[in-house]
């Protein structure tokens, strides 16, 4: 059997991280260092308060506590491939309750940014497309135009979903809550200069090829019918996960 460097199977020799994992660790620690109090990550006592407080742990593959445990075990790559980082709804329950003051939500943001930077998710992955459409919207108008954001988002990810959403959308429009025209700010040029300058401080985004990427990475994995992923498992690609329906 071909030896794989996946940390899930353990490092090639004890205490030694594969090169790819070393780079991810470096990237994560750089991101964490920019968060005030990011170093408190070291104080985690694995009490599980975060996982117990999170309202969406049930839909995650790794609970917030496990995220930190896996970071310590040198397994960041599976975290970047997990749906955990995309499922987080930013409710900050974990962060406010953590007895060690670890900013778990912000650390998950950091993991998201690295996943985006390394392009570890399917191209039309919903959370990424939403974020990307959102940032584009701000660059264009200076404000977020909700109607345009949702239309563009669903057209890019699940165009047929628009049909089933039409009823809600029309109801919102009928009640005067879906204006068609975006409003631009006057200082758009200045805002764009600010964005352009600030972008130079963020980590560079260079595409990295990941040959074993499939569309079942990340959140969309739980939407897939069982059969397809079971087949993937037989092909040695990935362990089967429970469907969301069975989790619910």
């Amino acid at each position: 059997m071909k030896m794989r460097s996946s940390p899930m199977r353990g490092p090639s020799s004890p205490g030694v991280l594969p090169q790819a994992e070393k780079e991810l660790r470096e990237a994560f620690l750089t991101e964490a260092a920019r968060i005030p109090g990011g170093e408190l990550l070291n104080r985690c006592i694995q009490c599980g308060t975060c996982s117990g407080s999170c309202p969406v742990t049930y839909a995650m593959d790794y609970s917030p506590r496990q995220v930190i445990a896996m970071f310590r075990a040198g397994a960041i790559e599976p975290l970047l491939r997990s749906r955990t980082i995309w499922i987080c709804a930013s409710c900050y329950s974990c962060t406010t309750r953590c007895p060690a003051d670890i900013k778990i939500t912000d650390l998950l943001y950091a993991l998201k940014r690295i996943a985006i930077e390394k392009k570890i998710f399917p191209r039309r992955f919903p959370v990424y497309v939403l974020s990307e459409t959102f940032t584009d919207m701000v660059r264009r108008h200076g404000r977020n135009h909700e109607t345009g954001l949702l239309l563009r988002f669903f057209l890019k990810t699940r165009p047929f979903k628009l049909l089933s959403m039409a009823k809600d959308g029309l109801a919102l429009w009928w009640h005067g809550r879906m204006p068609f025209k975006p409003r631009k700010i006057r200082g758009l040029e200045g805002l764009r200069r600010i964005i352009a300058k600030a972008e130079t401080f963020d980590r560079p985004q260079e595409p990295v090829e990941h040959d074993n990427l499939t569309d079942t990475v990340g959140y969309s994995a739980i939407m897939e019918p069982w059969g397809r992923r079971a087949a993937d498992h037989e092909n040695g690609r990935r362990p089967p996960r429970r469907r969301l329906a069975t989790v619910l």
Partner: peptide
């Protein structure tokens, strides 16, 4: 005023 960035911006570009 301009958009605050909401939760979406933070997961793409932090400094921006």
């Amino acid at each position: 005023w301009n958009c605050c960035g909401a939760t979406s911006y933070m997961s793409v570009k932090e400094t921006v």
